[in-house]
Each structure stands twice: as C-alpha cells, then as structure tokens.
Design a protein around this nucleic acid. Structure first.
Length: 714
DNA sequence: ATCGATAGAGTTTTT
DNA sequence: CTCTATCGAT
C-alpha cells in the first residue's frame, strides 16, 4: 500500500497497528506528525473506516490545518469529514451542538484571559474583596488549576483547608455565576463542560459509538480534563492512539500533567508501545549536543536517539557583552550565512521571554534584515480589535456583560464610571445582565432607577444601538455587518481621532479582511464561527513560512517547528533557566526541556548565545552562563569570536566603513527596506553617526549610519 | 464626564 | 523601561 512507502519499520508498526490502545513515544524529528497523518489515511484506505468516525486532536490550529491539507492530498474530499482540531475547538463544537442537554446556550461566547480577568474583578467587587489584597491574577490561576483538574465550584468547596482556599472558593463560585449570567464560557470551561456533557449517558453513547478511533498528538502537554475527555470518547471502542515525548513537556504551568503519558500503560494495560528513535531532522552534531543537554534531567527515561544525517558543523557557542551585541551578533551571522546559501527565511531566533524580542527587532530594522515576529502583543488582543469584537459579540449575545462594559462608553457617549457603577448595582440587585437591566429601565416608565433624565436618555440610545445592530446581525453578511457596526457606533470616527489612529484603524481593517473568509456562510452562522475562530487562534497559526524573513519566536511557540538555522539567545542563569524556576527542581527540569526543544528545532546550524550583562526592566545586571551551557562538552562546540575580554569592542560595533557615503541633512537617500527619503538631521554619536531620515513611505526613522543600508542618491 | 499628568507597579511561557 | 491605574484639573 502506497501509504506505507517511505516509512521506517518503527513508523510502519505505529501506522499499521489498527486496534487497541497505542502509545507512541517519539523523539524530536522522528516524524510523529507524519505517523499520525499516515495512520489516519491508512485506517481509511486499508481498513475502510469512515473518516466521519475518526477524531484527531492536535496542539495548535496550524497543526490541524496542515494535517487536514496533507490528508486532503492523500484522501481527497473525504478528509473534510474527519473531526480534526485542538481540544478547545472540538469541545466548542460539541457544546454548540449538544450543550443544551446540560443547560448551555448554543450562542455562548468564549472569554479569553483578559475577559476572565475583568470578570474576576467584578466577582471581587460583588464579594467586597479588595483586589489589591486578593490578586485577581493569582485567583484566576487557582481557578484555572481547579478547572484543569475538573474540580467544579461545588467540589472545590469540599476541599477547602485554608483561608486562602476559602477566598478562592467564594470567588470561584461568584465567577461562575457571572459567567452564566453572561452566557459565557472561559477556555477551561470548554474542556470541563465537555466532560460534563459526556457524562450524560445519551450524549456519551452518541459520541462513543461514533468515534471508532481517537488520535492525540503532543500528548505530553495534555491536562487531566483533556485526558478524561479522551478516555470518555474512546471508552467504547478503546482505539486510542496517543503520541508524545516526555522530554518535550513544557506546559506544566498550564497544568499539563506528565502523568497522563506515564500512566497510560496503567490505564490501558493492553496498550502497545511504539518507539520512534530515528531522527530525520538534525545533523549528528546537533543531535549529540541535544542529548547532552537533556541527559542531565533526573526524572526521565533515557532514549536512544540516532540519525543517519551527516555530522555537520559543530554548533557555535558565542559570548557577547550585552543584549545589543547579542542582537548584532545574530544579525551579522544571518548576513554571513547568506554566503553559505542560507536565506533569512531559513533562520529562527528563539528566546525565553517575549521581552527579549525587542532589541532583536530594533537591530534587524537597522540592518535592513527582514523578520517576522511571532507573538508579542497578539493581533486579537489589540485594544481596537477587541473593541470591534465586543460589538460583534453583543450582536450574538447581548447578555455578554464584559463586552457590553467594554463598549458602553467607547466611543465616549456620556456614560461614565459613575453611571456604569449605578447600573451594575441596579442589575445585580435583580440578578439581571446589564443588557436586561437596560431594557427594563427603558420599559419601566415609573421606576427610573437611580438615574437622571439625561443619563436615561444616554443609556437608552446605547440600548437602541445594540438592538439595532442585533437586528442587522441576522440580515447582513459578516463584512457588511462590520462596516455597519463601525459606522453606526461611531467607532470609526472615534478611532481615527485617537493617537496612532491610522495604525489602529489599519488593524480594524485587517480584521475586516479576515472576516472575508467567512463570507460564504449564512449571516448568523458566519458571525458565530468568526467569533469562535477569533478567540481560539494562536499566533503560530498565522506563521507564514513562505515569507523570506527571519523568524523571531519564543521557545514555547517553537515546539513542533523546524528551521535549517536556529539561534537560541539569552543562555544565562535567570533568563534560561528562568529565575522563577530556581527554587523548584521540577520546574528547573522543565526549563531544561525547553532548552532541549529549542536545540532540536535546528536542522543544520545551531548558535547558542550568552550575554555577560543584560538589562531587564531598566536594571542592568551581570549573569553567569546558563547551567545548560556548562553541560555541553566543549569538544562538541566551536566558539565564536566575541568582544569578551578583547580590549577593542570594534569587532562587534564596527566603525563606519570608509566606503560609506558622506551624508548631510538635506541629502536624498535610499534604504533597502524603507525606500526613498530625505535626511532631516545628522548627529555624531561616538565613532558613528545617527541620521534622522524622513521616508516617503515608512515615516521618520532614526538610523545608525554604520548599520543602516543607506545609499546616497545623486 | 473627560482629559491629562503623574505616580506606581509589574514584567514567563499561552490554548 | 513601559504599561496601568489613579488622581486632580478643566
């Protein structure tokens, strides 16, 4: 059978074993995604199983899309019938379809972490607890921890043993009430409620009999709720196939539980185990270095990873002075790698924390190197984008209090803090959503609540706005609907008059463009799926490999990706490993796994960079090299030339080359990236020159003459 | 109610 | 350092 071609014996076994529980332990680069994909194809083609009866769970939407695309090639149209997605997306689907069985409205909205935090603050208010003393973030974390372990508010009440628990219990309870009032579910509810849904015998029977096969990727990063869900779904046919690598478990802070993978054999004593140990990704040199790094972990089973790939060049360890030099080192390496045939798009820079991306970005701009940043402030979390989404959510579900509060005075329409506080109190006394309260106030002629005539008028016109938009929601296609929202709410005019209005409006337009993809759906349906897509996407999902630019990415997000050239920066004590892991050996092992994940992304070239000094949040400090670096035998690496200990730092901050054009204010210049512009001013700085250029397209920029690819125009 | 300024606090990773 | 929250002035 053609599907089995090109698989090694271990992969083949994993694909061919048709029945019963199967645990695939797969090292990095061993083709585990390929195995899952081919297994699905094989089940359908060789065993005649309907794709309708197969579920495959991935860690990101991107992985799901790629798998669907691949299966489309192998199977054609039938691939569409598969249940394929992240746990969260699949659960949302179940709950929209059958949630009514357990009292969940099919039009529920999904709250992200910001929404959750806002709601938590309201819960604290309701309970008269001071948010400065009871940290909302910590409470949110405690609640998420409970939910990930399927501990509902009632269960939580039974296990209270401290005053802190008691506070959590009360906040948790009120928080859930407020969620219900808004007809909203948070991320963890999606899983917890799906489990509850499947505890209904009728529903369970329906799904259990449907899913003949359940496959789960990245199993090492699942939590208890996800584990239970998988167990429920596979309960009848027991064809559950999980793929994972304990050495790449890096999400314990999201309550992923390694016991899922370690206990799999206990839960399924008849489980077969397949080991995938041949690496197809990395050079021998890189793989050997990776093995040394991970070997220092105590809580692990040793693996015998090997590869037939060439030895390759030894990875480079570079020591630089500070983060500026670090960024320059990376930029110059990327430039010189071009001479070896590596394009910018072949390179990725990985770091522990998002804050580290900034210097890299600035430096790349100065060097005129193209880059793409994954993450940072995410698109859907931008204020203006969330504002528009809030309006759209209200159309689907006007009871969504958090969205209503977000836009009730955005743009300003005379409804200030005071009014909002009064309205909330009035609504809460009656256990009404804010929208319902507005409606009752508008209808009740006598009971005007605590409001003056003028305030009532303002509130009423906001209510009319929402109701008017809601009426349109049934009629208009998504794109037109958004236009109507932007016009009628006054948001367009408002945002354009804000600081950075143009940029922020561009983001709104970007959102409109994304909405186009839902244009083929019916009005109501298009809106619902758009909103769901918007909340459940991640940044990695939109990573475009086709653009030829260096990828800047966190180590966490890099999981599952691969690049010909990888730089890992910030290999210092306190950064990687992060300082918050110092007092917990388990967390320290996770930091090491994180480092291992980064290293094993590299195919051919690997650079490990460490800075002697680094300033974080304004303070600069000297850090010792990362302990992970010390675990690498020196014979495995080559050292890059660096400024450390060298009296002249010129190696890393070059003076302007003599061939550089002499530039004065008023000159016309061309920049590789920004296009043409006029020099506004020149200022000498040390042995360099700082020029300010007004570009026709890119606006006013400050550039260092030595670094910027500037060309003087006649 | 709205705007602006100033003080203060928080900085890991994200479906 | 940067973003947020709160305060005071208009």
């Amino acid at each position: 059978m053609d599907i089995l071609e090109g698989l090694n014996p271990a992969q083949r076994q994993a694909v061919e074993t048709p029945e019963g529980p199967l645990l695939i332990l797969a090292g990095p680069g061993s083709g585990k995604t390929k195995v899952i994909t081919h297994r699905v194809a094989y089940l359908i083609k060789a065993w005649g199983i309907s794709p309708y009866r197969i579920m495959a769970v991935t860690f990101t939407n991107k992985a799901a899309n790629e798998m669907r695309e691949r299966l489309h090639q192998l199977l054609g149209q039938r691939a569409e019938e598969l249940t394929l997605g992240t746990f969260h997306a699949i659960c949302a689907r179940f709950l929209r379809r059958d949630g009514q069985e357990i009292g969940i409205d099919p039009h529920f909205v999904i709250y992200d972490e910001e929404d959750q935090l806002n709601l938590l603050k309201r819960a604290l208010q309701d309970l008269d607890l001071d948010p400065r003393y009871y940290n909302p973030k910590a409470l949110g974390s405690a609640i998420r921890a409970a939910k990930a372990r399927l501990i509902g508010p009632e269960d939580y009440a039974r296990q209270v043993t401290s005053y802190r628990d008691e506070v959590v219990r009360r906040v948790y309870g009120r928080y859930q009430e407020l969620l219900a009032q808004s007809r909203a579910l948070d991320f963890d509810d999606l899983l917890m409620e799906a489990v509850r849904l499947l505890r209904q015998p009728r529903v369970l029977a329906k799904y259990q009999s449907r899913y003949l096969h359940v496959l789960i990727d990245e199993f090492q990063d699942t939590n208890i709720a996800q584990y239970v869900l998988a167990k429920q779904l596979a309960g009848q046919h027991r064809n559950i196939c999980v793929v994972g690598d304990p050495d790449q478990s890096i999400y314990s802070w999201r309550f992923a539980d390694l016991r899922n993978i370690l206990n799999f054999e206990k839960d399924y004593p008849d489980a077969r185990i397949a080991l995938l140990e041949q690496n197809y990704r990395s050079s021998k040199a890189i793989l050997e270095l990776a093995s040394h790094i991970i070997a220092a972990n105590k809580e692990r089973k040793p693996k015998g990873l090997w590869t037939e790939n060439e030895v390759g060049l030894p990875p480079t360890v570079a020591e630089v002075y500070d983060e500026q030099e670090e960024a320059q080192f990376v930029a110059r390496q990327v430039e010189s790698l071009a001479r070896e045939g590596f394009a910018p798009g072949d390179c990725a820079v990985m770091y522990r924390t998002n804050a580290q991306s900034r210097v890299l970005e600035e430096t790349f701009v100065r060097y005129g190197l193209p880059y793409k940043l994954v993450g940072g402030t995410r698109f859907y979390e931008r204020r203006e984008v969330k504002d528009v989404i809030a309006y759209l959510r209200l159309i689907v579900n006007p009871d969504d209090n958090i969205s209503l509060l977000r836009v009730i005075n955005t743009p300003p329409r005379g409804i200030g803090q005071r009014t909002v506080a009064e309205l909330s109190r009035w609504a809460q006394a009656r256990e009404l959503s804010l929208y319902q309260a507005l409606k009752q106030l508008a209808e009740g002629e006598r009971d005007s609540g605590p409001f003056t005539a003028r305030t009532r008028h303002d509130l009423n016109s906001f209510l009319s706005l929402v109701e008017g938009l809601a009426a349109q929601g049934q009629e208009l296609h998504l794109h037109d609907l958004i236009q109507v929202v932007l016009e009628r709410s006054g948001y367009k005019e408002y945002i354009l008059n804000e600081p950075d209005g143009e940029d922020r409006w561009d983001n709104v337009l970007e959102l409109c463009t994304l909405a186009q993809e839902y244009q083929h759906l019916e009005p109501g349906e298009g809106l619902t799926s758009f909103l769901e897509g918007v909340t459940l996407v991640s940044d990695v999902d939109s990573l475009d490999e086709k653009v030829n630019a260096v990828t800047l990415i966190t180590l966490h997000q890099a999981k599952g990706l691969e690049f010909p050239v990888v730089f890992i920066v910030g290999l210092e004590e306190g950064v990687l490993p992060h300082i918050r892991s110092f007092d917990d050996p388990a967390q320290m092992e996770e930091e090491r796994r994180l480092c291992y994940v980064g290293v094993t992304r590299a195919k051919r070239r690997l650079f490990l960079v460490r800075a002697l000094r680094r300033s974080l949040a304004g303070l600069s400090g000297a850090n010792p090299p990362s302990r992970f670096l010390l675990d690498i035998p020196p014979s495995l690496v080559s050292s890059a030339p660096s400024g450390l200990g060298v009296p002249e730092p010129k190696v890393l901050t070059p003076a302007p080359a003599p061939s550089l054009p002499h530039i004065r204010a008023g000159d016309r210049v061309r920049h590789a990236k920004f296009g043409e512009g006029v020099v506004v001013s020149c200022q000498p700085s040390r042995d360099d020159q700082e020029v300010t250029v007004a570009f026709a397209e890119a606006g006013v920029r400050k550039l260092l003459l030595s670094l910027a690819p500037l060309e003087k125009l006649g």
